[in-house]
Design a protein around this nucleic acid. Structure first.
Length: 610
DNA sequence: GCGATCAGCT
DNA sequence: CACAGCTGATCGC
């Protein structure tokens, strides 16, 4: 839970995700996402009164967050004071002191955060430097390198401070299985159950918060069905979610809720009270999405755990793991890092100390020279393709994201199993070669929940790293980049899932034996093999109980080193007229590195002129 | 009656 | 397997 007080040292006249106490005096408000612990004071009468007397104070958020917020009548009074901003579109905002007329300009950019629908990070750029407020976020390793607006040309922007979602910034939470792995486990479990008969139904025991919609859309696609929920109203302007949810109870997958839903479930009832039409009792299992974490060297990472005769927990996390956060921070190398959450059982001092290790060292002048690893890790649009080496079915954006920081000694690590950088980095040519491969370009969580009014341009922008345009609707049976890049540093083993099962001995129906008593999806040690990104067949699941989307090792011949960067093949000496053009662009402040994505579209928000 | 806070629960 | 939020008790205004 966020304990962020609402203000940043660099820009103290704005408030984020807190709206009480000192924050009542802010010149502008920002809401990163629509979870209650980030909305403290937002419906307070004091703030309401302040708005009525102000001509300039506004609340900035994403379009989706605005929609979700206004769906709750308690926040309806905000309607005329909310300014929804497009994602990844730098916007200049005037921070006006209404008493004195004093004004400060700041440019804010919303970056997809992957936490829940509409969730964003805020990047502020102004006279006090660049500051990134992450809100809550889930980034996989390497994701930061794909965000164009965290870069300036080929270099990472100089970030003064990061205000960090440190929920899992604790070595205990070293790894959390990726979304794709967790999703696959859930899909398998649901498939095994609902395929038995139409009376076999699943209850997704989700909490009362946004963030599970990704699960609904993927389940909906996989099983060509809709998910029963209590209300559709919040999604009425979000067709990409709306089409997957229903208030019609005649479906095999439910995510409906009731104050006494656990009691209902114990009595073999769904929260909605749904019963089979012909009187046959429903056969219900509950799946409770829960965060599961594992240590650095832990081999077992069960993503589904059976907790009762018909109850399961499924791994699901809205937040980045320790290793994912470390990857994020080591890429950005901010001067300061401030935690917004203190993990359970930790103190602020402990977390601050741990975070200090991730701050840029004062003696580090690399920013003034080069950022070669940053360049290597980035995926770029419209890069030339060359070379003809055979490469496995992995795309550049899944391989350019390995942790590259010098790892400090971890709590349980001996430092002996860490792969050398050469083993985890790939050469630029390899990345280019692999661009456009379908498997790894299935739309991802971040794309989905942040492209609220999905337009083609927004979609393609969200995949700018891959030169691929997302479909406007998720296709759930996609084969995601399973296991391709999610190995924690130091874990040199490939990853597969084993479905270990002891067959039910208390089934009342023969078909029940299809659902094991103990259903554990776990990675296990396996030999190095060729990549295979397709899902393992049902037969394999039944026969060998092995689910193994596989991960290949980067062979020696594919490995790159920091110093083995080939020249750009089409490079040539620029002609005078080209140089002139380049200089003009530079003089106008335009980013010459890339196309429109890099060029800041600075929109002036004229406050008070509405 | 309303809001803030906390314990308890899931 | 620890996130997010609900309910209910208590207190103050």
């Amino acid at each position: 839970m966020s304990s962020f007080a609402g203000r940043m040292k660099e820009y103290p006249t704005i408030s984020l995700d807190r709206f009480d106490r000192e924050n009542l005096h802010a010149r502008a408000y920002f809401l990163s996402h629509c979870h209650k612990d980030h909305m403290k004071g937002l419906k307070g009468p004091l703030l309401k009164r302040k708005l009525q007397f102000s001509r300039t104070v506004r609340l900035y958020c994403s379009f989706v967050t605005k929609e979700l917020l206004l769906n709750n009548p308690k926040y309806a009074f905000w309607e005329e004071y909310i300014v929804a901003l497009e994602l990844e579109s730098p916007t200049q905002i005037s921070l006006v002191d209404e008493a004195s007329g004093e004004k400060e300009e700041v440019v804010v950019t919303l970056l997809p955060a992957g936490h829940c629908p509409g969730s964003v990070m805020f990047l502020f750029e102004g006279s006090k430097g660049n500051v990134l407020y992450t809100g809550d976020f889930r980034f996989a390793a390497g994701d930061a390198s794909r965000i164009e607006l965290l870069h300036s040309g080929s270099r990472v922007k100089d970030i003064q401070s990061v205000y960090l979602d440190s929920t899992f910034y604790d070595p205990r939470f070293y790894q959390i299985p990726t979304r794709e792995v967790c999703l696959k486990g859930i899909l398998e479990l649901v498939k095994n159950w609902i395929s038995q008969s139409s009376h076999h139904v699943v209850w997704l025991n989700c909490k009362a918060a946004y963030g599970y919609e990704y699960l609904f859309t993927n389940l909906g696609d996989e099983f060509n069905t809709q998910i029963h929920v209590n209300s559709l109203s919040m999604f009425k302007k979000m067709p990409e979610i709306l089409s997957y949810v229903t208030t019609d109870r005649r479906t095999q997958i439910h995510a409906c809720r009731h104050p006494k839903d656990d009691e209902y479930f114990q009595g073999n009832r769904l929260p909605c009270g749904c019963t089979a039409a012909d009187g046959t009792p429903l056969r219900i299992i509950s799946i409770k999405p829960s965060t599961m974490w594992f240590g650095e060297r832990t081999k077992k990472t069960n993503v589904i755990i059976k907790t009762g005769a018909s109850s399961f927990r499924a791994c699901f996390s809205f937040h980045s793991s320790y290793s994912e956060i470390k990857d994020f921070l080591s890429y950005l190398q901010p001067v300061n890092i401030y935690p917004s959450v203190i993990p359970i059982g930790r103190t602020l001092a402990e977390v601050t100390q741990l975070l200090k290790l991730m701050c840029r060292k004062q003696s580090d002048h690399s920013r003034l020279i080069y950022k070669p690893l940053g360049v290597l890790k980035r995926c770029r649009v419209e890069r030339p393709t060359y070379g003809n080496t055979h490469k496995p079915d992995r795309c550049s954006c899944c391989t350019c994201l390995q942790v590259t920081e010098e790892e400090e000694e971890e709590h349980e690590g001996q430092g002996d199993a860490k792969p050398a950088k050469e083993e985890v980095m790939k050469e630029p040519e390899e990345k280019m070669e692999e661009e456009g491969k379908e498997n790894c370009h299935a739309p991802k969580w971040e794309d989905f929940f942040t492209t609220e009014m999905l337009t083609d341009s927004q979609n393609s922008q969200s995949h700018s790293c891959c030169s691929v345009t997302s479909p406007s609707r998720m296709t759930g049976s996609q084969t995601p980049e399973l296991f391709s890049d999610e190995e924690p540093p130091g874990n040199d083993e490939n990853f597969s899932l084993t479905l270990s099962a002891s067959l039910s001995n208390h089934s009342s129906q023969n078909m029940d034996s299809c659902l094991p008593d103990t259903l554990i999806l776990a990675p296990e040690q396996r030999e190095q093999g060729n990549v295979r990104t397709s899902m393992t067949s049902q037969k394999e699941v039944n026969d060998g109980l092995i689910l193994q989307p596989e991960l290949d090792e980067v062979s020696d011949s594919q490995a790159s080193s920091d110093f083995n960067i080939p020249c750009t093949p089409e490079s040539k000496v620029p002609q005078p007229d080209e140089l002139l053009q380049l200089y003009r662009k530079l003089a106008s402040g335009e980013d010459c590195e890339n196309g429109k994505n890099s060029c800041s579209r600075v929109l002036l928000v004229h406050l008070g002129s509405e």
